[in-house]
Nucleic acid binder design. Structure first.
Length: 240
DNA sequence: AATCGACCCAACCGCCTGTTG
DNA sequence: GCAACAGGCGGTTGGGTCGAT
């Protein structure tokens, strides 16, 4: 039995938001916090479903959102992370301060994907299109290794994103997390609500010449903090 | 000035995951 | 263990905008 859609109630408004609705939503959240999204519309006097309210808030009304053109640095970050993570926009967004996953997704689909295609690069594999066919030999090992790194990085990003969410929801997450035995570094990330300064796997990948060399990656402190929890070590392909 | 097509982005939809009773 | 629920995510789309003709 599937879930019933949250907007199936009759009389709920859909489509573009009016300035009045925005104002109601902002005022309510500023005063009470969002609490339960499902209950919010009635309390805020909105004829919308909770999901629509959440989307409007997280993608548009939140005060810590940066809008406008993406910088070159941001573009490079998106491309590099997309090469590692694929279409995992929320994970990518954790590395781009003040950008939403929806905005990044839109920017990728409307700008970056086309640009890569024009450059002769497959936007899915991030390889030159002529190269994509010739990977059946020795590079499969490297590709597997990179994939392994990507999986790990993906898990790390998810963990960080979860910390951030928990921080926002919990009144005293710092103390709570300390009790859970998390490292000071992980806490500093959540406490500042800032993404990690380094793109660990990207940097490591670049440092070893992209592919084809044995490597023992020196992780950043961010990565190490997560490693403590996950009991995970990345070693050279020979060890793997 | 009118029309058309390409582009852009806010918002919706459906699915998945985590939580709760 | 199971069902119901809430929140989150990624794919898709509708409609507004803008430039070309």
């Amino acid at each position: 039995m599937g879930r019933s859609p949250c907007c199936e109630k009759v009389g709920l408004k859909k489509g573009s938001w009016t300035p009045e609705e925005d104002q109601k939503l902002m005022s309510y959240i500023e005063e009470h916090g969002h609490g339960s999204w499902r209950a919010l519309p009635a309390k805020a006097g909105l004829q919308r479903c909770g999901k629509s309210c959440r989307l409007r808030w997280t993608n548009y009304l939140r005060p810590d959102i940066k809008r406008g053109k993406f910088s070159l640095q941001e573009e490079q970050t998106i491309i590099q992370l997309h090469a590692l993570l694929g279409n995992r926009w929320s994970a990518i967004a954790t590395h781009l301060p003040k950008r939403t996953d929806n905005e990044i997704k839109n920017y990728w689909n409307t700008h970056l994907k086309k640009r890569l295609t024009k450059m002769g690069i497959d936007p899915v594999t991030h390889k030159p299109k002529s190269y994509a066919l010739g990977s059946a030999t020795g590079q499969s090992k490297d590709a597997a290794n990179l994939s392994h790194m990507a999986q790990w990085e993906s898990a790390r990003l998810e963990a960080e994103a979860r910390f951030v969410r928990e921080y926002k929801l919990s009144p005293h997450p710092f103390q709570h997390q300390c009790k859970q035995g998390l490292s000071a570094t992980a806490l500093s990330i959540t406490h500042s609500l800032a993404p990690p300064k380094t793109l660990d796997v990207v940097n490591a990948w670049q440092a070893c010449g992209h592919l084809g060399q044995p490597m023992i990656v020196q992780f950043s402190e961010t990565l190490c903090s997560t490693r403590q929890r996950m009991h995970y070590q990345l070693r050279s392909p020979a060890v793997l």
